[in-house]
Design a protein around this nucleic acid. Structure first.
Length: 882
RNA sequence: GCGGGCGUGAUGGAAUGGUAGACAUAUCAGACUUAAAAUCUGAAGGGCGUAUGCCCGUGUGGGUUCGACUCCCACCGCCCGCACCA
């Protein structure tokens, strides 16, 4: 073999790891355990270059931890339930099960050539009955613990397809297939009591020190703890049994600015009024035509309806306020009713201006007593403001102080009560769909809702279902529903709702610790392997998946399925960015964009830069220069517009297929590329030239190793004396060990890659002996092994390394080789760098000062005068102010 | 709309409040070659200058500091999430 040949190298080393069982995880109390997990994929059928990046990052950590003496668990599975499988079945007639398992097989085949250090013996899919049966057991335990209950909730209802729609299936208020306007409909649904844990889930965020701050902030905001006042506005006349309207507000201090009382469309009073007010009923019906998503509600035009009812202000019985029904008030939050203070809430102000309702200031800025006009005055609650006619006697005070004073006064006077409120709602898990985990309960006419017996689990999905009509096939199945009641044995009906797929992904990490256990977890395995030491996934999961998993871990602990230490299941979290790619676009005769696949375009070096043109027979010309080809392309309308850095999407045709990359360059190139350039938390742009360059570099490393081997580099090398090329190379080696180790530990893989480039350049330029070079190259192999494991094994074995790099301990830097005795200090004059100074590392401040002042550039700037100020930061910088 | 994040050469990016642009891509020049590819060597933020050097420069506008890509305020643009997409 005379050149770098990944097609030969990669399968060979993968076979060697398999034969050695290198990545099979077993409990071992002699080594510290390390559990690294990447968020498992949905089996869409093709792996995506984004998956490659995600799993490569996890693999770097897993292999590095392996080398540092840890007993590593690095499993893989499939988040296999969900809508796309049903959509595929509806579109092309197959079965969700066949579609899903075929996709899993395809994706596994695409993933294995990446050479990931995964323990494939633990693999499972959430649609395996062995997995979802254990999930049903968990559900029954949660039910017994009172962690699950039923209540009514609204869903998007497609009146034509007679089916429930997901939010993403509602487009501009209409069903995606039928196009019919969506209605809101109430159904009895199952809920997890996650809101009972709101306080705990919030407080425990403080302990998650190795989570990104932004994720903790997002979760805290999502849980949304607030302190406020609950009180009633008495109705001037009782109506439909309501004597008043209970409201909850976080700004009771602005009560004197109240303009009107607003009710949610779904508020009991609003509903009661609807019955004998056709206009209100029409308004409500219109509001209910919107989808259920909060985003849609918030973006919609704020609209209201005056009910004609009046309430009395609690502080002034002679002051009457109108009661409106408004489309922006959520029934799920607080009491479903609010009072509006337009002066200090922009949404209320817009509403008040629209419907000509009063606007009353309750406080003004200290430095600007202008009353509110078209912009609400909403200062931070910590900023002091001047109060107008405050009922608790405040003059200048902050919002916080005023809120507490108001709550205290309301409680003392007995018309209101301070209350802590959370935005977090209970987690609705019912889905009216087939391809999900069946909820294991039975509905009996005499016994009511009865849990299934555990010995009947798993409750399997029936295979004989059809998708030729919309709706839930479980509902339509001729026999599946019919079961005897587990309590009384009488004929009863099985629940046909299945579980939200978030349930599947809320405990898979625990199942990986004992994937074959006959109970959801095995206590010894869970105690040994949990928690996940490093979890890696996309920022898009910052809130829901991670919050639900945190809740599940607590719930599983309560039912005895996880140890107390595992209630925070993810010790460290890293959120990686996407892989993006340029979009290649031309325009058709009508000027509409036409997109082209990366393989259908050619890059030319023409016009002094990089030009992209369509691949075309006209451009196949022997011996033509790029400039000539580009002119030809311009003449034939073959030039392509390049839109840089867009999220990969099928419709824009900018998807890069990892299989093609591996076939062309090998897995190590793909891995090296996705780790280089961009910091892992940021998006990375996939470019053909970047992939090519990564491949060139790996080929160069291979050639260096081959040249070294031929020069007899595997020989023993004696210790080098200072000043020799051998010693310089040894120092560079020590330095790069420290830098790459820090890069991996700190998730700065791009930085580690840059240091490895520089180290490779240093070896290439070094005049060191073959034996010394071989030593440096073996260290290079060790440092590259987490990233490009196949090439690393190859070099290691070429240059006399013993055994597998994958099982060789991580290199240590010799501290003696890291010592620097001089340091270069930049000299700034008035904050701008003007010169520099070489000084002994341990020179004191005074010594540095005198040398800095003697510097010619400083002398010139001072021009005989004394410096105004002299700042010396030893080891860092000198700044002379003149 | 609300919550969170990001913004640095032609490009991806580097930089504990301390030399802005490491490392790489693209580009240009040179070596090798009959030629090309590959490989190797070198140049390179923009402007002025033969040059020592000087001015400008991290989305925009302000501020704090001896010193700001970094901290604070406002704005602009893009990305993620918004509870039934996964």
């Amino acid at each position: 073999m005379s050149r770098y040949s990944p097609a030969d190298i990669e399968p060979r080393w993968q076979a060697a790891w398999d034969a050695d069982g290198t990545f099979t995880a077993r409990r071992d109390n002699d080594r510290p355990k390390y559990y690294v997990l990447e968020m498992f994929p949905y089996p869409s059928g093709r792996i995506h270059i984004g998956h490659v990046r995600n799993y490569t990052m996890g693999d770097v950590i897993a292999r590095y931890k392996h080398a540092t003496g840890h007993n590593v668990l690095h499993p893989m599975g499939w988040d296999a339930f969900g809508m796309p499988a049903e959509n595929a079945a509806m579109a092309s007639g197959g079965h969700p099960k066949d579609w899903t398992y075929a996709n899993i097989a395809d994706m596994r085949d695409q993933m294995k050539p990446l050479g990931l250090s995964i323990d494939w013996s633990r693999e499972f899919a959430t649609c395996d009955p062995e997995y979802y049966g254990q999930q049903q057991a968990l559900f029954l335990d949660f039910l017994q613990e009172g962690l699950v209950y039923r209540k009514n909730a609204v869903v998007n209802w497609d009146p034509v397809d007679m089916t429930v729609l997901a939010n993403e299936q509602v487009i501009d208020g209409c069903g995606w297939r039928s196009g019919a306007p969506v209605e809101r409909r109430e159904l009895t649904q199952w809920f997890f009591r996650i809101s009972d844990d709101a306080e705990e889930l919030l407080d425990a965020l403080d302990g998650l020190e190795n989570w990104p701050e932004k994720v903790r902030t997002m979760q805290a905001n999502w849980i949304g703890k607030s302190r406020g006042l609950q009180f009633a506005f008495p109705l001037t006349e009782p109506v439909h049994g309501h004597a008043g309207v209970e409201v909850y507000t976080t700004r009771p201090d602005t009560l004197m600015g109240a303009s009107f009382v607003g009710l949610s469309v779904d508020h009991p009073l609003a509903r009661a009024l609807e019955a004998d007010n056709p206009k209100l009923a029409a308004f409500a019906a219109e509001c209910r035509r919107m989808g259920t998503s909060e985003e849609e509600l918030e973006k919609a035009e704020k609209r209201g309806f005056d009910t004609g009812l009046r309430v009395r202000h609690p502080l002034d019985p002679s002051w009457e306020l109108p009661v409106w029904v408004a489309n922006f008030i959520l029934m799920d939050y607080g009491t479903g009713a609010v009072f509006a203070c337009p002066a200090h809430d922009q949404r209320d102000l817009d509403f008040a201006r629209k419907y000509d309702l009063p606007v009353r200031d309750t406080f003004l800025a200290l430095d600007d007593p202008t009353p509110v006009a078209d912009t609400a005055f909403v200062p931070p609650k910590t900023e002091p403001v001047r109060w107008i006619d405050h009922f608790a006697g405040l003059d200048v005070a902050t919002g916080e102080e005023a809120i507490e004073a108001t709550i205290a006064k309301a409680e003392a006077d007995g018309w209101g009560e301070g209350r802590t409120q959370f935005r977090l709602r209970d987690w609705g898990l019912s889905r009216q769909r087939y391809w999900g985990c069946p909820i294991p309960v039975v509905h009996c006419d005499t016994c009511g809702v009865v849990p299934e017996k555990k010995e009947n689990l798993p409750i399997r999905l029936p295979d004989d279902v059809s998708f030729d009509q919309p709706g839930n096939p479980l509902d339509r199945h001729p026999t599946w529903r019919d079961v005897p009641c587990p309590a009384c044995g009488a004929p009863a009906l099985r629940e046909t709702d299945t579980m939200d797929t978030f349930v599947d992904s809320s405990w898979y990490f625990a199942r990986f610790t004992a994937p074959d256990a006959a109970t959801p977890t095995n206590p010894e395995d869970a105690a040994y392997w949990m928690n996940v030491d490093q979890y890696i996934g996309g920022i898009e999961h910052a809130i829901l998946h991670l919050l639900y998993s945190r809740f599940f871990a607590r719930a599983m602990h309560r039912c005895g399925h996880l140890p107390a230490e595992a209630i925070e299941p993810f010790g460290a979290l890293f959120t990686q960015g996407m892989v993006t790619h340029a979009i290649y676009q031309t325009r058709d005769a009508q000027g509409r964009p036409v997109y082209h696949l990366p393989e259908d375009v050619i890059e030319l070096s023409a016009n002094g830069g990089r030009q992209v043109v369509l691949r075309h027979d006209l451009l196949v010309k022997e011996g033509a220069s790029d400039d000539e080809l580009y002119l030809l392309a311009q003449g034939n309308d073959l030039t392509v517009e390049v839109i840089p850095s867009a999220k990969m999407s099928k419709s824009k045709r900018n998807v890069v297929d990892p299989a093609a990359i591996i076939a062309q360059f090998g897995a190590d190139t793909a891995r090296w590329f996705v780790l280089s350039d961009s910091p892992p938390e940021r998006d990375v742009e996939w470019t053909a030239s970047g992939a090519d360059a990564a491949n060139k570099h790996l080929a160069r490393v291979w050639r260096l190793a081959e040249a070294c081997r031929q020069a007899g580099g595997a020989a023993e090398d004696p210790a080098a004396s200072p000043g020799t090329p051998d010693h310089d190379l040894a120092r560079a080696t020590a330095r790069v060990i420290v830098d790459v180790t820090a890069g991996i530990e700190g998730f700065a893989f791009n930085g580690a890659v840059a240091k490895l480039y520089a180290f490779t350049n240093a070896i290439a330029k070094s005049k060191a002996s073959p034996a010394a070079q071989a030593r440096a190259l073996r260290t290079l192999a060790q440092l590259m092994a987490p990233m490009t494991p196949h090439l690393a094994e190859e070099i290691w074995s070429m240059l006399g390394g013993a055994g597998l790099v994958a099982t060789t301990p991580w290199p240590h830097a010799d501290p003696a080789l890291l010592v620097e005795d001089t340091v270069t200090l930049p000299i700034q004059i008035n904050g701008k760098r003007r010169s520099e100074l070489q000084v002994p590392k341990d020179l004191d401040k005074a010594g540095i000062e005198s040398r800095a002042l003697a510097d010619p550039a400083v002398q010139r700037a001072l021009d005989g005068a004394a410096p105004k100020k002299l700042i010396v930061v030893p080891g860092r910088i000198v700044n002379v102010v003149v």
